[in-house]
């Protein structure tokens, strides 16, 4: 897909992207970073309005989108709490979107209900970007994760990438695993038995790449020294019925500095943040920590998507 073909397009799910589409977005982000460094994109979104509809709080994603738009000279309208919008008064999502599309050139939506972003896109005449719909998709997170890996290793293909933590409910790891399979990365799923990668997600991944190499482990020590990247996610307390089980699992899947003693020299540790205690803080200053840079990469990715779908890039 050429850059011009992104104009008017909705960004709802990583499943809507071909490998070529993803490469185009990553290339655009790279060029966007160059333009930012040269201060050449400060008016790129001039006179464009982004509606930022956050029906549930997500400070980091919202700030990243709003900062992306502001840095490109665009305007932001919206709300950051579903309770103060008219949804609280019982307005349907369809009606909210039909109203907001009159005020904006692009809509960014975060909503606690699965599939709400797709519904918004079906209704809206302006492009919709999904900033997280319930436990379903968060495509800009996946794209910034891929961008981070590409930027660091200059490739994604053939890297051995471990995903650790809650692989059952974590939407981030579901989308990421799917996208990594498109790029022929080798995947290792590391989780406690009760939070294993669901079968339907593995089916999806195999559809993306029938030859994908997948290993499943219930501990990280035996595999960490073979990995290029370890992507950690939060294990949520509310997923456990038995709290003693939660405490056990939480500590068993924590990454400690001593575990990194024999890792590959270019090994990197990633995390979508916020982190609770999945990664020991004494790793932050080491060359292995990539998570803060990863989060900063949200800006060029979101800037690229905003500019691409509104026809302001290239």
């Amino acid at each position: 897909m050429a850059v011009k073909d992104f104009v008017g397009r909705d960004i709802i799910s990583i499943h809507d992207f071909t490998k070529k589409d993803i490469i185009d977005v990553l290339e655009t982000a790279k060029r966007m970073e160059t333009l930012s460094n040269m201060k050449l994109n400060r008016n790129m979104m001039n006179a464009k309005v982004m509606a930022s509809l956050f029906f549930e709080p997500s400070t980091r994603t919202r700030l990243s989108f709003e900062s992306s738009m502001n840095k490109l000279g665009g305007k932001v309208i919206g709300f950051s709490d579903g309770n103060i919008s008219s949804t609280y008064k019982g307005e349907s999502l369809k009606d909210t979107i039909k109203m907001v599309e009159n005020y904006s050139d692009v809509i960014v939506i975060r909503h606690p209900i699965d599939g709400s972003a797709r519904l918004a896109a079906e209704v809206s005449n302006v492009p919709v970007i999904n900033a997280g719909d319930g436990s379903n998709q968060h495509p800009t997170q996946t794209l910034l994760d891929l961008y981070t890996i590409k930027k660091t290793f200059d490739q994604i293909t053939d890297l051995k990438i471990g995903l650790i933590g809650d692989l059952k409910y974590g939407r981030t790891v579901h989308s990421l695993a799917y996208a990594l399979a498109l790029f022929k990365a080798k995947l290792v799923f590391i989780s406690p038995e009760e939070l294993k990668m669901p079968k339907y997600i593995i089916n999806d991944i195999q559809k993306a790449n029938p030859d994908v190499e997948i290993e499943e482990k219930n501990e990280v020590e035996s595999v960490i020294n073979d990995l290029d990247v370890l992507y950690a996610t939060r294990i949520q307390r509310e997923r456990f019925v038995d709290m003693t089980e939660y405490e056990k699992v939480k500590n068993a899947f924590r990454i400690e500095k001593k575990m990194l003693k024999n890792v590959k020299s270019n090994f990197k540790l990633m995390h979508p943040l916020p982190r609770i205690n999945e990664i020991s803080e004494d790793i932050d200053e080491s060359k292995y920590a990539l998570y803060f840079e990863q989060s900063a990469n949200g800006i060029p990715i979101r800037q690229s998507l905003l500019a691409l779908v509104t026809g302001r890039f290239g």
């Binding site: 209900i113 699965d114 709400s116 998709q137």
Partner: peptide
């Protein structure tokens, strides 16, 4: 938690076969 269960939206599913089992994928919540 699918939007089709919470708001007035017609359901939409894509049908696909994997290992000779038919799977139904929700267009909205996936």
């Amino acid at each position: 938690n699918c939007v089709t269960r919470i708001q007035k939206v017609e359901t939409r599913f894509n049908v696909d076969e994997t290992n000779s089992v038919s799977y139904f994928k929700c267009f909205f919540c996936e």
